Computed example of a mutant assay.
Amino acid sequence: MTQQPMSDARRPASGGPKAAARNRAALIAAAREIYAEHGLDVPLSAIARRAGVGQGVLYRHFPDRAALAAAVLEENVRQIERAAQETDLAGLLGVITWQLTESAAFISILHTDSTGTVPAYAVALSRRVERALRTLLPQDHPLASEPDDLMIAVAMVSGAVTGPTREYRERRARAAWRLLGVEVGPARPVEV
């Protein structure tokens, strides 16, 4: 028996561009959560399930694992840039601390690869984070004394963000900031 195509009247609405944007945002949020819990090697089907969409929707937005990881990192940086416009330095460092603890799985891909080269996208993201931080960094701040000190401090803290739970990673990040003599506000995401 041949199945007849559904008429337009019976075909469910796709939701259009608004649904596509919601699905993309849900996939990024789900990926961030699952990567924080299980690392980057988690099956993409688990991310689609957590987002409440099918795998086809995931692949429509992100053709591969690298594209999804890049989208999560891009969203992290956008939130940092937005926070730089809405808070003070301690608050921004709190947002960065939250990002580091939630995205600890990404830290290794932001540093050097097997050839000793930092990936170009990681350099671009790092520059955007640095610009956001510099908008709030007073000239007399301890991290402003040398040109590279600011991002070296962020790299040092990111290196300390290891451990099995988000809470444990946050404690380590806060300890690293404290050892650097830097005040950090509450570790929190940017409200969307």
Rank of each mutant, 00 (worst) to 15 (best):
V42G: 00
A176V: 02
A153Y: 10
T112Y: 01
F106A: 13
L93V: 09
A70N: 12
A21I: 08
A51F: 04
H141C: 03
I107C: 00
A144Q: 06
E33K: 11
P138G: 06
M1A: 12
L137T: 11
Q139H: 09
E102F: 00
L133K: 02
H38R: 15
A122V: 05
M156K: 07
V129N: 00
A9F: 06
A105Q: 08
Y168K: 10
L179I: 07
G163V: 07
P186F: 08
L40Y: 02
P186W: 07
D41T: 13
Y121M: 04
H141D: 05
E37V: 05
E37R: 15
A48T: 13
R50K: 15
M156N: 05
T135P: 00
L27M: 09
L136W: 03
R11S: 09
P189T: 12
A122N: 06
V190G: 07
E170G: 01
A124F: 02
Y35E: 02
V53Y: 01
Q4R: 14
S108A: 15
I28P: 08
V42T: 15
V77F: 09
L136S: 03
I152N: 12
L40G: 14
P43W: 02
T115G: 04
E167F: 09
G116T: 02
T165W: 05
T165I: 10
A176N: 06
R134G: 00
G159M: 13
A160K: 02
R10G: 12
E191Y: 00
R166V: 10
M156V: 11
D41L: 07
N76C: 11
A132R: 03
R172A: 15
L125C: 00
A48Y: 11
A160H: 11
L92Q: 09
P189K: 05
G56L: 04
L93E: 03
M1W: 07
L133P: 02
P164Y: 03
V118T: 15
D64H: 14
Y121I: 08
T112S: 13
R24T: 12
A175V: 01
